[in-house]
Design a protein around this nucleic acid. Structure first.
Lengths: 190, 190, 190, 190
DNA sequence: CATGAATGAGTATTCATTCAT
DNA sequence: GATGAATGAATACTCATTCAT
């Protein structure tokens, strides 16, 4: 399934790659994508050359960060989707996607752009998530837990938007919980 | 109304300023804030020098654009707030804020940052809107049209987030309408 | 004939442009094209930004340098070609082209590459020179001053090669003169 | 013959060294000296480390390539010089040098720089060729086959220049032949 | 010995801002 | 006031060379 040939990667190289991804995730998430590559490299304790050896362009680094997050989300939803109750599965996944997407927006939005102009490397992961969400939505609607007139595009948009909402309430968990109540209530059939 | 001392401004200067604001609004909204100043100036039919005479930094230009939008929003909410029914006033204002905030997100979000790290020049306008929204929220809650446990921060966050949601559905008015139904439903007490 | 619209250019801007061209000509000619743009800018007494305002890429600067040289050569050959004796005109032009093409080779060769992969901006100038040389060659052959079996490609190649030869003898004018004798003798019919 | 102390070199090491030289020759000749070392190493099927073990700097690799070519040329001229007729020997050697020097110019020119600023490692080979050419020239002049007023520097310069001329006519053997006629005719006394 | 990962100085180019015209 | 030329710090990316595995 995975197209690219990868040799095992030496221990130190793997460590550097991982650190770069970690640092980049942190940095892109909290400060946006305009952070200089040099700073990312420095924060990861490597030279710029190393960064560019692992990720040939800044965009590739960004894509790699995204892929990792998306895959984590995909894995999470897969697990939740296995649960018995469709309604519960749906709402739990909604939370999971929103919670795991936290961060600077420009960055998060790639999720919804799915299938359009997204970098090829993201296609696979976003498609997987989209499919899963489509399934969950249908299930929840069949179970009567979600308004029947809602399509996948609206759901995706709502996920992104709710992410933004939550971002504003970073420091107030109680308020975030109230937002979930509002949104989930709104999603249920009247 | 405006706090600072301004001399009248010659007719052509005023015209240039206005064109710059119009162009900048259009450009920042549709293409984000990374557009070069030079391009904005050219689109406005003036030299960069003129742009910088009117707005000492790019950030100042951005702030001015924001202020104008915020004032328009403030004016709109003022009008709506005058209407009789608190519930209707509240929901109409919610729509108005979201609709008028449309555009590249990074840009829009300044709204919710209200009172925190926003550029000083925005304080006044955002404060006005915040106060108005606080009033409307209280009114709607008193009227039993909105859940009582919702605070102003949640409302502001929701406004921003809904703006983002809508941005994803730019081209699908029906879907946008469904989103409003979801959010408004969610806002009502169970 | 000249396609591009150019406004007069302010006095200082024109001066800077000229200085940049002069410096670049000198530098590219003596040290090759790998000299950093910053160094050229510094030598011309301007900032890098100015260099890039006048010439959007380093390649464009190189092209501009070439064009100027080629146009000077074209003008020179035009004058010489007007002279009465075809044989004299031909040999004088040969000298002129070689002498004026002096410098790092990679650079000079553009002449012969004419019509192939040369930067568009050079096409016009090289074409002009080529045409002129074709005419001179034909004339000299008609006058019996040059072997009849020689085509334009050989002439062009010989011009470039002779330039290289001369470059090796930069500091020995007498030797250079002897080279001209050799080449010119060789060009005459046996 | 080789001045420096070298231990025998293991079989595989020798093979690697040879492949590197072959690849580098090909690559420098056809694409110039700006090709990255990494690419040369890859083309030779070894890691960069290996390249740098055999040749401490890129320049050293370039020098080694040159030396090998120069030694081949020297060997060739030695053979030809042994022939009876001095005139024939001279002209045959001229051809041989030019033909064997083919390739990107910047690279070839090192030949003529002989004795001046050339890398120390080339001194020996260039000196050998120079001496041989000096001998051939003197012989041909004594035999009345070449103008008496021509010195070794002119000959060397002419060799390089003719190489450049030929490079322009890479694909036209007939034209190349005509160039040889021109140059050889020019070299003969009037 | 061979490998290829790591390094970091170096390079072209952009862009907010200043200032001479 | 308006203009747009000049400025130079900043930034992504490359590549010869070193060194841990």
């Amino acid at each position: 399934m995975s197209g690219s040939q990868e040799r095992p990667l030496r221990a130190d190289a793997a460590r550097n790659r991982a650190r770069l991804l970690d640092v980049a995730t942190e940095v892109f998430t909290t400060r946006g994508v305009d952070v200089p590559t040099e700073e990312i490299a420095r924060a990861a304790g490597v030279g710029v050359g190393t960064l560019f050896r692992h990720f040939p362009t800044k965009e590739a680094l960004l894509a790699a960060v995204m892929v990792r997050r998306l895959e984590a989300i995909a894995a999470g939803t897969a697990e939740l989707a296995a649960g018995a109750d469709p309604a519960e599965a749906f709402f739990d996944c909604f939370r999971l996607v929103v919670d795991r997407s936290a961060g600077k927006n420009e960055f998060t939005q790639a999720l919804a752009a799915a299938g359009v102009d997204v970098h090829a490397s993201l296609q696979e992961s976003t498609a997987a998530i989209r499919d899963r969400l489509a399934g969950l939505l249908a299930g929840a609607q069949r179970a009567g837990a979600v308004r029947a007139d809602l399509g996948l595009p609206e759901l995706l948009a709502l996920l992104v938007g709710t992410g933004t909402t939550m971002e504003q309430l970073r420091d107030d968990p109680a308020a975030r919980e109230r937002i979930y109540e509002v949104v989930f209530d709104g999603l249920r059939p009247r």
